[in-house]
Amino acid sequence: VAATLPAAAEQVTLRVHHFLPTGSTAHAKFITPWCDKINKESAGKLKCQIFPAMQLGGKPPQLIDQARDGIADIVWTLPGYSAGRFPVVEVFELPFMMTSAEATSRAVWDFVQAHDQAEFKDVRPLAFHVHGAGHFFTVKAPITSMADLSGLKLRAPTRLTNMMLGSLGATPVGMPVPQVPEALSKGVIDGAIIPYEVVPAIKVHELTKFASEGDPSYRGLYTTVFVFAMNPAKYDSLPDDLKKVIDANSGAETSAWIGKVWDEADGPARQRLVERGNPVNVIPAAELDKWKAASASVTEAWLKDVASKGVDGPALLDAARTLIDQHSK
């Protein structure tokens, strides 16, 4: 056995840092398999040390700078955590943009390559992806129309979703994810918007009675962009054969694969709701047309925001939509 192992000198260990526990989809279904794959394809020369749950210190918004500074070699994080730093890629988080996570993830990769390299110049992005569309999970009544949202206290995950819920008449409550179960069970909030994948982890299927998703013909209510990025110096220090392994496991295909992992994680989570007898209500497309009009103010706010930074917002919005459409066919 010893003979087939590469000498220690040739072996490169990559410190991979992220913010979720080991049981999460990210750790178990994406990062660990990705590490196994590069280990195998490099004949054992590339090895990951995965540090889940912020074991290397700091808070999730600091992960991106940890990759820049070489505190970690690879990180998985949300650009949205560092609000104001990645305003352009936020275009994918606008209301009613995404289709499937797989297609949208591929679109994000292509979009950044073509239009948005400046925002990520400090790191070497290996992949971008999004989660499946976010839906409504409510305690008292299902959401079928905008009127149902009026005055409802809903937990929103990001700045744009806060604005969106406000534009639809709800009262957005910004709170960290770990507080959500307690807040739901005691009526501090009336519901939350999250993707299906997150439902079992924070027991939302047990704490709410109704799920409401948009008509499947319609684009998703919202999504969140994630980035899987490497320290550039670490990449440059690799010998060519190992660079090739990393290259083969990054880019559009890898991004699409990660998106697919998230798409696939939605199914069983939705199934658990159905098995519990929580009705999954569908918001009709005609109703969503009204929502789209009402939430246009969010898109306008984004356009204004990037315009102040000298970015051609309308063109980028168009490019993002076109890419999503292309990859959704």
Binding site: G57, G58, Q62, D65, Q66, D69, G70, I71
Partner: peptide, 11 residues
């Protein structure tokens, strides 16, 4: 030292 000094910026 490099990673340490970087880490202390935000620790």
């Amino acid at each position: 030292w490099g990673p340490l000094l970087a880490y202390l910026k935000n620790a």
